[in-house]
Write a protein that binds this DNA or RNA. Sequence first.
DNA 1: GCAGGGTGAGTTATCGATAACCCTACCCGA
DNA 2: TCGGGTAGGGTTATCGATAACTCACCCTGC
Lengths: 336, 336
Amino acid sequence: MTTIYDVARKANVSAMTVSRVINNTGRISDKTRMKVRHAMEELHYIPNFMARSLVVQETKILSLLITDITNPFFTTLARGAEDAAKQFGYRLMFGNSDEDLDKEKDYVDMVLSTRVDGVLFAPAGDGSLTHLQKLAKHNVPFVIIDRTVPGVECDTVLGDSRTGARLLTEHLISLGHRRIALINGSSQVSTARDRYAGFVEALKQSGLAPDPQLSAETGYKPIEPRELLSRWMALPAKPTAVFAANNFLAIGVIRCLRDMGLSVPEDVSVVCFDDLGLESAINPFLTVAAQPAYTFGSMGMQLLIERIRGEAAPEYRSVVLQPELIVRRSSAPPRS
Amino acid sequence: MTTIYDVARKANVSAMTVSRVINNTGRISDKTRMKVRHAMEELHYIPNFMARSLVVQETKILSLLITDITNPFFTTLARGAEDAAKQFGYRLMFGNSDEDLDKEKDYVDMVLSTRVDGVLFAPAGDGSLTHLQKLAKHNVPFVIIDRTVPGVECDTVLGDSRTGARLLTEHLISLGHRRIALINGSSQVSTARDRYAGFVEALKQSGLAPDPQLSAETGYKPIEPRELLSRWMALPAKPTAVFAANNFLAIGVIRCLRDMGLSVPEDVSVVCFDDLGLESAINPFLTVAAQPAYTFGSMGMQLLIERIRGEAAPEYRSVVLQPELIVRRSSAPPRS
DNA sequence: GCAGGGTGAGTTATCGATAACCCTACCCGA
DNA sequence: TCGGGTAGGGTTATCGATAACTCACCCTGC
């Protein structure tokens, strides 16, 4: 690889002069500038960003940590983040924690040793506290997206899970459902708690008592909750609707129900959080509380970059994005 | 940030000794090793990978360039790539070319200045030649995935687009379709050419003549080809089936058809390349030639890492992955 | 008693770039 | 003619780490 010194030698100037031409700093005569430019082109010179990082203490790399790269919510978010990062001249390093705190820890270590300028962080759960504290201790700016972590103070971009859950539940109740089951993410994840709260709130407002038997916690990862559904559907007072706390869970539920010979929404209605991406384009089926995923990413990135540049006010900002209830075919009145 | 020198001072040894402890090289007595370890912990020392990169001439960063991060094919591929990279101790930098050669160029420049150890490259099209040559000129190892680029010699992981297209077309023909329209990616992209070839091949084998009027080239990006479909459906000999060259196009086609009051598959059958991700899980609707996206990523990464490590044979390898025809509801016999 | 060899560590140069300081013309006005 | 300002560019140290060499010490065997 050719270096700044090769260019300097070729152009008959000092390395510093080349550096000045590259960064457009200092005073350089047009003649010298041209000479250097030509030398750079002839040698196909490309600046070594890593070497630069070492002295200016800035890598121009940001890191995005998400919990599932196959979930359309997060890929759309990633796109928002990437677009924003690029716009401000940053590169992006991705990481995938898989909702797993151990993987998340590994990733945080990688991030620290890469000396990235900042992290856009979708925490795997409350246990992410340690990891975020580690970032803070090393003065790495970060912004949390999608989920809060108790004990962590920072800029955040969140969805209003509670309201979304309430809307979905109210929708089911208004259709006439009285026995609604909830399949939820881990209670170690803030959105799962909020969705639970919104769910219960809506039930109580309608004078319904939440039934502990109809509430389960399986985590957000894609699964097929066969046993759970068999148990539910074997109850004397079996549910007529299921509220799945995310898209993957809804899909698992629907597949299991169909395998059990039950159809959606005739036998059981299903609603969930987050849209499904392409699916909703041609076969809009699931009733969902859709979140503006792209905005989560772009807005989060913007907060992060402002923080890095020191343009942000000292107090932390929290952006809350509202979900939108989209009623589709998967929810219908219960069979009387 | 604490450096190796801080640790050295605290442990009363030289920086070199600390380096040896970190990398487990050279000879160190257990006593010294412990002393250094403790100092590292007390100071919360984290090695600076960038500084290391500068001297060992290796960043342990690989780069993955895809053409659309929102397409489930590429996100699944990305996951495969990430898993493989992580397994071998590499970090991943993502880039998104959006099927756009200009963006791709920017990205290649970024990649070069970051001095990544290698690139897994899904080219935007034949015009990527220049970019790949640039990588080659700077001795950056790369592996091409999904699409070939004429004029470039390197390891590749490809799908058998021709066979897939043939299978889909034969399927339509066997259902009784005789007038099949093709909506394709740009002819500047190898897969689009191959899919066209497979399509024509299947037609000819059945004694059908490809009709130029029924073949269009819109690119792989998501669009709603309203005019195109109106024109097609206004033809005296209008098509009874549409072969969409990727999932996005199929979705656009289906939406437009529905807007026109036509239903799939009753009025028009639709088939396409690549599955849709979540959608196929609950509402398997589209007949597709599904490709093993995860394998594209993991296999590509494996080839790349072998090449970087010098473990690969000098001659280039080309892996061809077979698509699988999955017949679903979107294809049916034509209305007689 | 001493050459020879292995142990455990330190010294110095280097990776590619930039910050901070320094130097030399040249120009201009008093 | 001389002091001082400025344009244009060079020198040197430094970022954080590692490679390559060096060195002191102790052990061993003849």
